[in-house]
């Protein structure tokens, strides 16, 4: 028989017994030791990967927020600058308006003053004319009532006296 006469004491039955023993060992070690330890190691790996991922996510979100804040800050600065420009423009326009208003008021005041002065002038002239007319009429009356020379002298004296008063 081929199976029975093998040299070196090779025995199929013992080979199979060794195999059986080895299979039991491999299976047992897998279920009892290898698999639980491997599962634990995988679990730990997953845990640390999760931690790493969270850290990366947090870092990226922090970076996003930082970028957002920087953008907001830049926008605010721009807005502030714009407002400054607008305010300075507004101030300038207000200043111009006020100046124009003041100018206008000044002109009005001047024109009013001019008108008032004109009126006063006219009034003075009118009153002067009136006074002259009265003087003339009074002189005429006196002339009419006294002699002509006296009347003329009186008229001249009166006229000169009134002239002196007017010059004084």
């Amino acid at each position: 028989m081929f199976l029975a006469n093998i040299p070196l004491n090779i025995d199929w039955q013992q080979i199979l017994l060794h195999l059986l023993n080895f299979v039991i060992l491999v299976g047992g070690l897998y279920f009892i030791l290898f698999n639980p330890v491997k599962k634990f190691m995988d679990k730990r790996k997953a845990h640390y990967e999760e931690m790493d991922k969270k850290a990366v996510d947090t870092l990226s979100s922090v970076k996003d927020k930082e970028r957002e804040i920087n953008e907001k800050l830049a926008n605010l600065n721009q807005e502030l600058e714009n407002k400054k420009v607008a305010a300075s423009k507004e101030i300038a326009s207000l200043k111009e308006a006020q100046l124009a208003e003041a100018q206008k008021q000044a002109e009005e005041i001047i024109s009013k003053a001019t008108i008032a002065a004109e009126k006063e002038k006219e009034k003075i002239i009118t009153s002067a004319n009136k006074e002259i007319r009265n003087l003339v009429s009074e002189g005429m009356k006196k002339v009419m009532s006294s002699s002509e020379d006296e009347a003329i002298d009186d008229f001249v004296k009166t006229f000169e006296g009134s002239k002196k008063d007017g010059s004084n």
């Binding site: 013992q14 060794h18 023993n21 039991i24 060992l25 047992g28 009892i32 639980p36």
Partner: peptide, 26 residues
């Protein structure tokens, strides 16, 4: 039952030792 080489007995003992160790660790 049968007469075997001492190596097979060693194999059985090694398997027992390893499995007992594995059970204790588990």
């Amino acid at each position: 039952l049968i007469n075997v080489n001492p190596g097979l007995i060693s194999g059985f003992l090694v398997t027992i030792i390893l499995l007992v160790f594995a059970v204790i660790v588990r």
